[in-house]
Design a protein around this nucleic acid. Structure first.
Lengths: 328, 328
DNA sequence: TCCGTCCGTCGAAGCGCTTCGATGATCAGG
DNA sequence: CCTGATCATCGAAGCGCTTCGACGGACGGA
């Protein structure tokens, strides 16, 4: 029952077979008679045997670990990141893999390090930007990988992301269906738009592309005062406005209060839809419909794709996750 | 410059020395002449050599990896968790260690697995509860570890946490110094109190223990409507109340609005202090003073303690991090 | 000058596993 | 009854590293 220092030889001895036989039982790479297999499995359980990870990786050239590189920039949405990380770990464990956590500030050198030391079999790169210095290194290393987000040149890479354009479209459509003629998208602060053109711009395009309403996009900082001001300006400049999509998580609460101050009754003569986590949309009064960033689904998809690549199977170069609108 | 498949033998050949010499140069475990060392280091750089992690761990019985087990329960404060995780990774890298991410739902069996497979040298357990089933396993395995939080029986374990009692005291003192005679602590929802008695109760004790004011503690859910109601009831039941500490991150915004509705002018005739992350306290109007949960400091301390234990050095059984009040 | 030290380096053993080729045993076909 | 194929299992050879003991050369003391 213990487990400290139990080797495959101990298991083999107890089951009365050769070490290689134990290995084959455990890996299933050669056929073994059921009786022998049972004896081996019993010995494994009795002794609490777990193969030594280092020895295994040395002999089999497979570490059983994948790396996940998370961004650490300011303004990253921490809860989503965390959901992502835990989703990835959960899915990886289903495939009997562990997850090594890295931060983006290790940069390309970090990728080179983990690749050369064979400490991981593959990696997942989160929050890839349009011009990302890690992408070139990644391509050169030839380490199996999956990216969350789309770099400018995705040639030969496996990328996964939320279909942000569809998300924008879904929000616009929701508002139009509620009878809104003038609608607006309240986005993130200018800084975010400047950095990740891909991501924020695709929402904008989807939102504007839904031609049935007069639509505008307004960037917006996320502190209480700025939100108040932005909403006031918005309502002044578009007095006919009756529908608003908010793609700025921390601002949502402030937006609701600003609308209340302006005499808008949300859910009656005015409609609001959120792009963001459930908690945010649930915590307002009234609760709001929302399109969430499906962090867990993204993580699972990414891990699953990576596993397939490790097994030498095909995966699509590009995968877009459909946004889901939750009514409340 | 490449790196794929470069072994210590390649480095040795290029430097014209034996493999063992390269090993000693890299580890510093035997004295090597400066000239030889230089030649070796040059060869390492030229070839982009990184030792094979598996081989190293097999031969040296040191994996160079520590595990971090994160809770995944509902109601966990995700951003803080994330800060913690990234802080731990950053600090671990300074010690040339990597971090393996595990989730608490692997439970005791997960601990046994990583211990037996020697995939990590030690581990950090986050968010340990008063009665935590992992603690007993941990003790039995004898794997070097550091806990964040205090279990009921901490005998022989290394624990690190914020000094929550001091945090409560600091908040009460802040309010008293502003001249408040009646003060209250608005805490988390009942569920949180029920689960982690240690953590929430220590804040309460610190808050109440500061005898200079009439103090009360009110639990509070975190949706807009409940907060409104709770604040209203609180103000009704204690009409003389002029000071409030809020230990409930998502509720802060709603509290501010409820106070405004009740005609309280925060910062003038009424004082509010927050226990929680900076962003929350900065985003309100006016900005609020706050005591933050110093996730990064906690993570760094935990990792540092673990490194010392791995090196066979002494560490204190129990470390309480002083809360820091930020005025705004 | 000779001996004992110490320093820098080498070679070999071994960490625990996977995997390849070999070896009996079993069985069907002629 | 013998041959060739098939199946279950074994033994040995590494995987790339660390570490131990050994060894030659330089150097200081007698």
């Amino acid at each position: 029952m213990a487990g400290r220092g139990v080797t495959i030889a101990d298991v083999a001895a107890r089951a009365g077979v050769a070490a290689s036989t134990v290995s084959y039982v455990l890996s299933g790479k050669r056929s073994i008679s059921p009786e022998t297999a049972d004896r081996v499995m019993a010995a494994v359980a009795d002794l609490g045997y777990h193969p030594h990870a280092g020895a295994r990786s040395l002999a089999s050239r497979r570490a059983g670990v994948v790396a996940m590189m998370l961004p650490l920039r300011d303004g990253m949405h921490l809860p989503v990141l965390m959901q992502f990380a835990s989703g990835a770990v959960t899915e990886a464990r289903r495939h009997d893999q562990d997850v090594l956590l890295m931060t983006a500030d290790e940069g390309p050198a970090g990728l080179a390090r983990v690749a050369a030391s064979a400490i991981v079999d593959g990696l997942i790169l989160m929050d890839v930007e349009v011009r990302d210095p890690r992408v070139e290194t990644l391509r050169r290393l030839g380490l199996p990988s999956v990216l969350i987000g789309f770099p400018a040149d995705a040639e030969g890479l496996t990328c996964v992301d939320l279909d942000f354009e569809a998300a924008g479209r879904v929000c616009a459509r929701y508002l139009v269906e509620r009878g809104c003629g003038d609608i607006a998208l309240l986005g993130a602060s200018e800084a975010v738009y400047a950095r990740r053109t891909g991501f924020a711009e695709r929402v904008r395009e989807g939102f504007l592309g839904q031609g049935a309403a007069r639509a505008e996009v307004w960037p917006c900082p996320d502190d209480a005062v700025s939100v108040q001001r932005t909403v006031k300006e918005l309502l002044t400049s578009k007095p006919e406005l009756t529908g608003l999509a908010v793609h700025n998580e921390p601002a949502v609460g402030h937006v609701m209060h600003a609308l209340a101050d302006a005499g808008k009754r949300v859910g009656e003569d005015f409609h609001v839809v959120v792009i963001g986590p459930d908690e945010v949309a649930e915590r307002t009064h009234p609760q709001l419909p929302s399109v969430l960033v499906p962090a867990e689904t993204l993580a699972e998809t990414a891990v699953r794709h990576l596993m397939r690549k490790l097994d030498g199977l095909e995966v699509p170069d590009s995968t877009l996750i459909e946004p889901q609108l939750t009514l409340r």
